[in-house]
């Protein structure tokens, strides 16, 4: 594993590029905030904890999914993947470089959420650590999905539509802004194919605003492994 590449790439792709692309930073931070606001208004503040539990997961998910656009940009517009292939950089190094790069874009949002959670007394030290763990897992699984998507199309233009669509499906429909107990069990399990769903269920449990369902942890971990393996396996590396 080439850590030097992974971290230099992450640094150049995140901190170094935020100045040129700060609007994306603002939009990734604000999109879940907007929903938070809507939920707060509509429920008279009652459902705010649900939106806080799910919002941080939604944020992570959208940052991970939008990696597909970045990878497609690198592949089709810069033709950079070809250059990287002939350096013995592995798919795994590339994926990890992307994931750490993506993390930085979500960072301001994370801080806002975690501060709000603390302010509302929703987090204790244990649930805080578990929350970070879940965020990490969701980032890996959604980036892996993004990896796969980036190889499906022929131009980066096509990827933008696909990622926007997936981002909606994966951040709004799962129980990110409402209690998961409202969903009939079969639908909950169906929605669990999106890593966002089990992650949001777990967060609600951790926040103590809905019953804890530990089976969701198993689902989350297993599907992350599956998505990771598929992502690495399916990403186009050498052209055919």
């Amino acid at each position: 594993m080439n850590l030097r590449y992974i971290f230099t790439n992450a640094y150049y792709r995140s901190l170094k590029s935020i100045r040129d692309n700060y609007l994306f930073l603002i939009s990734t931070t604000l999109t879940p905030m907007t929903l938070l606001f809507v939920v707060w208004i509509l429920s008279n503040g009652k459902d705010l904890p649900f939106a806080l539990a799910g919002g941080i997961i939604a944020l992570t998910t959208s940052v991970g999914i939008f990696e597909a656009g970045n990878i497609a940009f690198f592949r089709f517009d810069l033709r950079y993947v070809d250059l990287l292939i002939t350096t013995a950089t592995t798919k795994m190094d590339f994926l990890l470089g992307e994931i750490f790069g993506a993390l930085a874009w979500a960072f301001p949002g994370f801080i806002i959420y975690l501060l709000l959670d603390l302010y509302m007394h929703l987090l204790n030290p244990i649930s805080f650590v578990l929350t970070l763990f879940i965020i990490g897992i969701v980032l890996i699984s959604t980036s892996s999905i993004a990896f796969w998507i980036s190889g499906l199309t022929k131009t980066s233009r096509n990827v933008w539509g696909l990622t926007s669509l997936l981002s909606i499906f994966m951040t709004i429909i799962p129980p990110t802004f409402y209690s998961y107990t409202l969903l009939p069990k079969p639908i909950l399990y169906l929605l669990s194919i999106f890593p966002t769903t089990p992650a949001a269920v777990l967060e609600q449990g951790l926040f103590g605003i809905a019953p804890m369902d530990w089976s969701m942890l198993a689902i989350l971990i297993i599907e992350t492994i599956v998505y990771l393996v598929l992502g690495i396996y399916l990403i186009k590396w050498r052209d055919e």
């Binding site: 590449y5 790439n9 950089t89």
Partner: peptide, 8 residues
């Protein structure tokens, strides 16, 4: 530099 890091 990034490229040379990629080369290890």
């Amino acid at each position: 530099r990034l490229y040379l890091h990629a080369r290890g």
